[in-house]
Design a protein around this nucleic acid. Structure first.
Lengths: 131, 131
DNA sequence: CGGGATCCCAGATGATACTG
DNA sequence: CAGTATCATCTGGGATCCCG
């Protein structure tokens, strides 16, 4: 196991400037709105741009656009434009996006379980430093 | 399942400004050096400050210090100072940190499996936009 | 309705010099 | 050796205005 980790770690080191899947995925999901967008589409299925905006709540128009473009670029969501006036655009998860949602949900389960310990540690540490 | 997701999503929405474990953990692991640090400690066990710096490779002294403080604050690593001259400080994962490493490794496995598709999508998308 | 284009700021990161 | 302090830089994200 430790040997495996060394290999993985060295691999990650060597490929950091080309493509490391782990870091790549983490980087993509770690911006402010990607996961919320994926969660919203996972929860409600297909949504139009403004529906999505309302569901998420406090995202700016610009950032929702940027986020959707990035997710589409990675194949996590698909974008369907209806040639109507006024325009209608629908977004939904792809199978790949659903897979990512599932993985992150698992990470979320762990976080739920251990979140309390993290908070406790953080509080304790704050006391140690500030007093 | 879809009902569950809606609940989780609404929960995440409502608690975004207090504490949402998922976002909290993602935020913490998503800075530039945290995961690399955790991987290094997972792979090599206990390491001194400069050993860690060499293993990671291109992290600045300042950012390694900041990263280690954050991880310590969350209880992911423990820091042991030996009162010697010259000073010696050793870092190692806590059980909590090992748990996080395991979870992220699982996400990493998924990323390894599907990384190729992501790259393919991204390339295809780039062609569509730039030509 | 669903964006695109521009400007701007706060916070994350880096480079360098110094120290117990 | 293991940091701290300071200054410079780079980037994500928000505000605002405009458009087909």
């Amino acid at each position: 196991m430790e040997k495996d980790l060394k290999n993985i770690f060295e691999y990650a080191k060597n490929t950091r400037y080309s493509f490391c899947p782990v870091r790549d995925v983490i980087t993509r999901i770690s911006d402010k709105w990607s996961m919320l967008t994926i969660y919203a589409l996972g929860a409600y299925g297909t949504l139009r741009f403004n529906e999505l905006k309302v569901k998420i709540g406090d995202v700016s128009q610009r950032m929702l656009t940027v986020t959707l473009r990035n997710l589409e670029e990675d194949g996590m969501i698909k974008r369907k434009v209806y040639p109507e006036i006024p325009p209608r655009v629908e977004y939904a998860l792809t199978p790949l996006g659903e897979g990512l949602l599932k993985q992150v949900s698992l990470l979320g389960d762990w976080a739920q379980e251990h979140g309390a310990s993290i908070i406790k540690n953080r509080t304790k540490f704050a006391k140690k430093r500030k007093c």
